[in-house]
Design a protein around this nucleic acid. Structure first.
Length: 421
RNA sequence: GGAGAGAUGGCUGAGUGGUUGAAGGCAUCGCUUUCGAAAAGCGACAAGGGGUUAUUCCCUUCGUGGGUUCAAAUCCCACUCUCUCCGCCA
């Protein structure tokens, strides 16, 4: 959410932002509705003032007749107020709908572009494996090593279902434990977050309004979060934080649920795109300063890089172009891991900052110089499982069909190799 | 799932129709006192929105949403959450 005052004062900037982000929002319409909103609001307020003043007088009037006259007048006024408030309600509805569609302003450094294809590669890291044998994809590898059961996963869960078993399950736990240790070394407070979350919080993060079909819904009209970002931002909703407590640095673990509506044809096999996975998420709430946001954004992104580097998996960094940038984001980096059998990089992590866009919607403020100001928020993936397994097993496969375990994981996994029994 | 109680400012806690935006206490901040601190005394202290900007003025907000009334923290309805007891349960 942007400040309506900011939008009015910087209409050109916001229009430009909307254009860059390919948003369809009609900002002139918003200003028009806002004018109407202000006009009615002022009229209602003036009438309420009159009502309040009269109300104070009625108390003092002792004469019954005089009192009666007063009350009759006030009845008329009340009707007028009610009429205008009805009108205001409609206008507010329209106003809110439009306001929720106004995108955040991308940073100056964000490259222009229409979509995914225009994202800019910032760097690549690591040596792509050069196999002197016929390599297998992760599905074959993991099936051969009895690490996964897709068939029964589909039987039980349906499309995109999977069971991780044996070393597949153990490796996932090892990654969680290692990742937990790694990221907590960077001064985060650990959390396990709820996944069933009230609808309003999805508006806060910017996941709604959007495609509600992409979210699972419960019979109580709650939704299953696709990322711990939603409950973790909700954690401090409607709170006034202390300046000295900032930045708040959280590392949250949660299951993640995504219906993947609209991508039925994509990645129909394997562990790339599943309905249900697990993720450790880094999240920071910091002071309202662009410099702080940028600093922490770079740090969060670098944390993810370091983690991947410690595993030794080749990756690249992308800067998301304006056309591919989500509405709430100021700027985003994606980390993509090399998937040998697809001969391409696949997204594993995303680091973004929002300025006060999310905190404004969540009403998360802190005291600065005696004033309450909206904080800034950022988040970045630490590590998602099981998607990480795809690159891990494909990159580290050996000629005999076994998988070499990265050294850093060995203490958590208990052995340095997964091979056929 | 059944029965009951409750939700008020940063916290605690009064308040059952009309100067109550809300007593008292705690916390916080300023001043006095002190070599300094503590203690004490005095004073300030909710948020959001709008108009004017010299000064200020107005509106909203007592869990949420409706309703009754000229007027609601206070009465009515629905919902949410919390607590106690019973039942069930990983």
């Amino acid at each position: 959410m942007l400040d309506i005052k900011f939008i009015r004062d910087n209409l050109d900037i916001v229009k430009e932002a909307a254009r860059k982000k390919k948003s369809k929002i009609d900002l002139d319409k918003l200003i028009e509705v806002d004018d109407k909103r202000r006009e009615i609001l002022q009229s209602v307020e003036a009438k309420k003032q009159e009502q309040n003043e009269a109300s104070a007088k009625i108390t003092k009037v002792k004469d019954d007749r005089e009192r009666e006259f007063f009350i009759i007048d006030m009845k008329k006024l009340k009707d007028k107020i009610q009429q205008e408030e009805l009108l205001l309600k409609d206008v507010m509805e329209e106003w809110k709908t439009l306001m929720l569609q106004v995108p955040n302003v991308p940073d100056m450094s964000v490259p222009l572009g229409d979509g995914e294809e225009d994202n800019v590669e910032l760097k690549t890291w690591g040596e792509k494996p050069n196999f002197d044998f016929e390599p297998k994809d992760h599905i074959t590898l993991m099936n051969d090593l009895d690490m996964v059961d897709f068939e029964r996963g589909t039987k039980v869960h349906g499309f995109r279902g999977y069971f991780l078993k044996n070393d597949g399950a153990l490796l996932s736990w090892a990654i969680w434990n290692y990742a937990q240790k790694f990221f907590l070394g960077k001064n985060f407070i650990p959390f396990i977050a709820p996944t069933i979350v009230k609808k309003e919080y999805f508006y806060g993060t910017g996941h709604l309004p959007g495609d509600e079909n992409d979210l699972y819904k419960t019979q109580d009209n709650d939704f299953l979060a696709g990322t711990a970002e939603v409950p973790m931002m909700g954690l401090h909703a409607n709170e006034i934080l202390k300046q000295e407590d900032l930045p708040l640095r959280y590392l949250a673990f949660s299951p993640c649920f995504r219906r993947e509506a609209g991508s039925h044809g994509k990645d129909t096999k394997g562990l790339i795109r599943v309905h249900e996975f697990y993720k450790l998420e880094q999240l920071i709430i910091c002071e309202a300063s662009h410099e702080e946001s940028v600093k922490f954004h770079e740090e969060l992104n670098r944390n993810t890089e370091e983690f991947i580097e410690s595993l030794g998996i080749p990756y690249r960094q992308l800067e998301i172009c304006a056309g591919d940038l989500k509405g709430a984001h100021v700027k985003s980096y994606d980390t993509e891991l090399w998937v040998p059998m697809e001969k391409t990089y696949r997204e594993i992590a995303s680091a973004s900052y929002y300025h006060d866009f999310q905190c404004r919607r969540f009403n998360i403020r802190y005291q600065r110089d005696g004033k309450n100001v909206y904080a800034h928020s950022l988040n970045a993936t630490a590590i998602p499982t099981p998607r990480i397994l795809v690159s891990l097993v494909e990159n580290f496969q050996e000629k005999d069909g076994s998988i070499k375990i990265p050294e850093v994981l060995v203490p958590y996994f208990g052995k340095d190799k997964i091979s056929k029994k």
